[in-house]
């Protein structure tokens, strides 16, 4: 894949396996291959969207990037340095550069801390500011995300879902990060509130020059916010490309099926379009199918697909997909 100077983060052959204890006597341990050989890069200032069904490993990828998990194998190169094997102490400066916004705005805020303390905690930990200066930064952050500085003394239960997600965003911004991992930041919110949060995220990106990894299962929202989109299936990226190109000319049968499954809020289009219905469910990531992982649900599957795994192929500039049909 092309490497230019402005690549902020590059992931090479990232793997994350979770061990499952099997049997009383230990025996042979099985592994859930949540992320299995994933490579991609993100340029400075761009948004990469990551989509896929639940269990495809998109959240695990995000959590491994921020080193909440230790990768099983592979490299995470951030700003030229491999952070995949660093210990906690070495990671501290990177914790300031990489931040995360979580899915559930109800579970990700400590109910016993005031909003001011929640946002200010990171400032204490990284010794950025104390006392009056800290209060000022907190107030500034609150008004930046559309809340009032008076809210700093209130507790999370006094806020609605959309407001809590704003608090989560303010907390992530507190340490002036360069890169934010947004793990399903809007899926718990109402439709009318989703648009508020998404617009705010893109305004902040413009103002502060942020880079985003945007993880979601809502494909239409991902297209809206992302410059490039990667589609994951059972721990692998099956297709990645510029979002316009990927949505207009999906190459992988899985991407095609995924796009055709989105409910369109337009009755005429709904009546006239052909839907590709995928049979069955996603197979277990403990024993993924041999060869191409999508072959068990793919309508074009050939004998070859079961034998050797297809490799990523460049179809057009910057648009890659892994399928024998191409």
């Amino acid at each position: 894949m092309n490497k230019s100077k402005d690549v902020l983060l590059e992931v090479r052959n990232l793997k994350k396996y979770f061990a499952m204890k099997k049997g009383f006597f230990g025996g042979n341990t099985q592994y859930v291959k949540a992320v299995d050989d994933v490579s991609f890069y993100i340029k400075r200032g761009e948004t990469l969207g990551l989509v896929g069904e639940s269990g495809c490993g998109k959240s695990t990828t995000g959590r491994t990037l921020i080193r909440l998990y230790r990768p099983t194998d592979g490299e995470i190169i951030y700003g030229g340095k491999d952070i995949s094997k660093m210990d906690d102490k070495e990671l501290i400066p990177y914790r300031k550069k990489i931040q995360m916004i979580f899915q559930d705005p109800y579970a990700s805020l400590n109910t016993r801390m005031t909003i001011g303390d929640i946002i200010g905690e990171a400032l204490d930990i990284h010794k950025i500011a104390t006392g009056k200066e800290k209060t000022e930064i907190v107030h500034d952050l609150l008004s930046r995300v559309g809340l009032s500085p008076d809210h700093a003394i209130r507790y999370p239960h006094e806020f609605s879902g959309g407001q809590r997600q704003r608090i989560g965003i303010a907390r992530a911004l507190a340490v002036k990060p360069e890169f934010i991992i947004c793990d399903e930041p809007i899926s718990a919110l109402d439709v009318s509130i989703q648009a508020q949060v998404v617009n705010m995220l893109s305004d902040l990106q413009q103002e502060l020059g942020l880079t985003y990894l945007f993880i979601a299962h809502d494909l239409s929202m991902v297209r809206y916010i992302s410059d490039r989109v990667g589609v994951m299936y059972l721990g692998k990226i099956v297709e990645i490309g510029e979002s316009e190109e990927l949505y207009e000319h999906p190459a992988h049968p899985y991407t095609q099926a995924l796009l055709s499954a989105i409910p369109v809020p337009d009755p005429d289009i709904v009546k006239n379009r052909k839907r590709i219905l995928l049979e069955g469910d996603v197979p277990s990531p403990i024993n993924p199918p041999s060869g191409c992982r999508f072959r068990t649900r793919c309508m074009h599957a050939m004998p070859k697909c079961a034998e050797i795994e297809p490799v990523m192929k460049e179809i057009s500039s910057g648009h890659y997909a892994a399928c024998y049909l191409l």
Binding site: S220, R223, V264, I269
Partner: peptide
């Protein structure tokens, strides 16, 4: 307030 896939970006 809902993004539309068919309308472009």
């Amino acid at each position: 307030s809902i993004p539309r896939l068919d309308l472009g970006e």
